[in-house]
Design a protein around this nucleic acid. Structure first.
Length: 310
DNA sequence: CGACTTTGACCAGCGC
DNA sequence: GCGCTGGTCAAAGTCG
């Protein structure tokens, strides 16, 4: 079995494998930042996120949620106790809650925030969709019902990850090809929410993109499920330039589980992009995020590869 | 002409 | 039951 097949067979989406030394923020159920890039990971934190010790998913699923706070030296208040579900709530909340996240005073320098969860609690996300006119089509109806039931079961296992990114661009290029299938006005926000679906056949990955009302410079991108394919080799725009060639070559061999979007926020601008106008470029320009060591990225990649190796 | 976006309508879940 | 809201569909339009 190839490493790719192994990836595809994996059930748990472990986006933070290999990111034990990265910089990111977690949000709790109050969308309060419970850990951000300003807090240097402790050895315990590194251990907590080292795939050799425990995967991120395992950590989330573990019984001792407070190990998070210990691991990251977080001074969690009673309301900041971390739990997988509580973290996950973030991705299910309305934009108003996202706004709270972005306006949270505890995250003034937090440029990238993320949350994750298995959405077993996403009752809304499990709702069945009946296409127009399906009621008057006997067999088609039953087929669609079965299809929807399957979809429903599938969705219950799909992880969602939300990223808060500072960018002038709404649709951050992450290397994959997306087709917009909807846009909705968001309550209490002048900015609409856009719905995208991966254009790759049989890939059910979706993402929602919306801009924070409180901080319009913040783009909230929520990913749902994982890609069952690699990044397309033929990309429109500058997508393929988001990663330096060495990183692209490495990550493309990792399989679809690799969190390209997440990683992209930690990458310096690609030297292949003379215009430097990728979303990540905007991000780094605006936030002046310090990349402590470019080699670290290679380490992260290597770490991920090791964690995926049989 | 294919890929993609826009946009109004539809549907289901939820709270009251 | 009703209204609100989030999520999705699909026809029409746009673009390269």
């Amino acid at each position: 079995m190839s490493s790719n097949e192994k990836n595809n067979s994996q059930h748990d989406y472990d986006p933070f494998q290999g990111f034990n030394r990265s910089t990111f923020s977690f949000l709790d159920d109050n969308n309060s930042c419970i850990f951000n890039q300003s807090a240097a990971p402790t050895p315990a934190a590194i251990q907590a996120f080292d795939p050799a010790y425990m995967s991120f998913t395992d950590c989330l699923n573990g019984g001792d949620y407070n190990s998070f706070s210990r691991a990251f030296d977080m001074s969690c208040s009673s309301s900041n106790v971390v739990s997988p579900k509580k973290i996950g709530i973030y991705a299910e909340n309305s934009v108003g809650d996202h706004q709270n996240a972005s306006e949270n005073p505890s995250t003034p320098n937090s440029s990238v925030s993320c949350s994750s969860h298995e959405d077993e609690d996403s009752s809304k996300g499990n709702k069945d969709k009946h296409p127009k006119g399906s009621e008057d089509q006997g067999d088609d109806k039953s087929k669609k019902v079965n299809k929807q039931a399957t979809k429903k079961e599938k969705r219950q296992k799909e992880a969602r990850f939300a990223f808060l990114t500072k960018s002038e661009l709404d649709n951050l290029e992450d290397g994959y090809r997306w087709r917009k299938y909807g846009q909705k006005a968001v309550k209490n926000s002048p900015y609409p929410r856009s719905y995208y679906r991966c254009t790759s056949p049989k890939c059910g990955v979706k993402k929602r993109v919306e801009r924070s009302f409180q901080d319009p410079s913040v783009v909230i991108t929520t990913y749902e499920a994982k890609h069952n394919h690699h990044i397309p080799t033929t990309l429109r725009g500058h997508g393929a330039r988001m990663f330096p060639p060495s990183i692209m070559a490495s990550t493309s061999s990792m399989g679809p589980d690799f969190p390209h979007e997440f990683l992209s926020h930690f990458l310096p601008p690609s030297s292949n992009d003379p215009a430097g106008n990728t979303s990540s470029m905007h991000y780094h320009q605006q936030q002046q995020l310090q990349i402590p060591d470019y080699g670290l990225l290679q380490d992260l990649v290597s770490s991920f590869i090791r964690s995926e190796a049989p």
